[in-house]
């Protein structure tokens, strides 16, 4: 397993298994967990579009998701109640499937992203994920208090003459960027499972916010390690294996 062939995918997934559950905790706080699924589908569509446009798929995926993150903030007032995420999800899925159906290269990449073929992750992807995880965790640490305040006391920023939009926009872009990176390696549903299930379980039992973040992290890492071992042992695609392990954890704990 420690051969480079497996080590690079393992490290790529491991870093994402640290970032995504923490990000998921803040998405759950904001009741925006559907955003994870929306950004993941958009990243898949963007990656495939990038591929047929002779761009690196990662650039296409990250670009589409980040544009959606910025656009979502601009249209927040008109697309309330999760409508924006539903539109993104459907649009991303439709583009991805149509591009894959009409282009042989895109078909192969599309399958990899929807199956969650972590083993295709290469050194370039690992470098992107190292940078993305470091930036993501740093930004979340800096924004944590403002995100909590914006949710619990929405007037806090206005009455103190502060602007809330840098926090909101910063978080939206971070979520889009993280999900795009994760989709490229863990797959659409693998990324969504790591964002959704660990914080969902952690929030039910944790005694405090800090404990909630720690439990999200522990559950995400444990599920990842188990899923990676099982997928390798049984020679199965990683994404579905991760989802099954997390669903099992979910049923067991909930």
């Amino acid at each position: 397993m420690w051969h480079e062939l497996f080590l690079i995918p393992f490290l790529t997934g491991l870093l994402l298994a640290v970032l995504l559950p923490v990000l998921g905790a803040y998405l759950r706080l904001r009741e925006e967990w559907l955003a994870a699924l929306a950004y993941a589908h958009l990243a898949a569509g963007g990656a495939l579009l990038g591929l047929i446009g002779s761009l690196p798929p990662a650039i296409g995926g990250v670009g589409a998701a980040v544009l959606a993150g910025v656009g979502k903030r601009l249209f927040a007032a008109r697309l309330s109640g999760g409508a924006g995420y539903a539109l993104m999800l459907l649009g991303g899925w439709a583009v991805a499937v149509l591009v894959a159906a009409n282009h042989p290269l895109a078909e192969r990449l599309g399958h990899a992203m929807f199956d969650g073929q972590l083993y295709f992750a290469d050194a370039a992807m690992l470098q992107l994920v190292v940078a993305g995880t470091a930036i993501g965790l740093l930004v979340l640490w800096r924004l944590s208090q403002q995100l909590l305040l914006a949710h619990l006391y929405p007037d806090f920023f206005r009455i103190r003459g502060l602007s809330a939009w840098p926090t909101q926009l910063g978080f939206d872009v971070l979520a889009a960027l993280s999900l795009a990176l994760a989709t490229m390696s863990l797959g659409v549903m693998g990324a969504f499972a790591l964002v959704f299930i660990p914080p969902w379980l952690a929030f039910r039992r944790a005694a405090s916010w800090r404990a909630g973040i720690c439990w999200s992290l522990v559950i995400g890492l444990a599920a990842y390690l188990l899923a990676f071992s099982l997928a390798l042992y049984f020679d199965q695609p990683f994404g579905p294996m991760l989802a099954i392990v997390l669903v099992f954890f979910g049923v067991l704990i909930a």
Binding site: L29, H151, L152, Y153, F203, S208, R210
Partner: peptide, 25 residues
């Protein structure tokens, strides 16, 4: 200015303690 509205902070389902809430503000 500090403002208290009639809206109760939405804490259902969140693992947030009173001590953390006070520290936050």
């Amino acid at each position: 200015i500090a403002l208290q509205t009639q809206d109760v902070p939405p804490v259902d389902g969140l693992p947030l303690t009173g001590r953390e809430l006070l520290a936050m503000t």
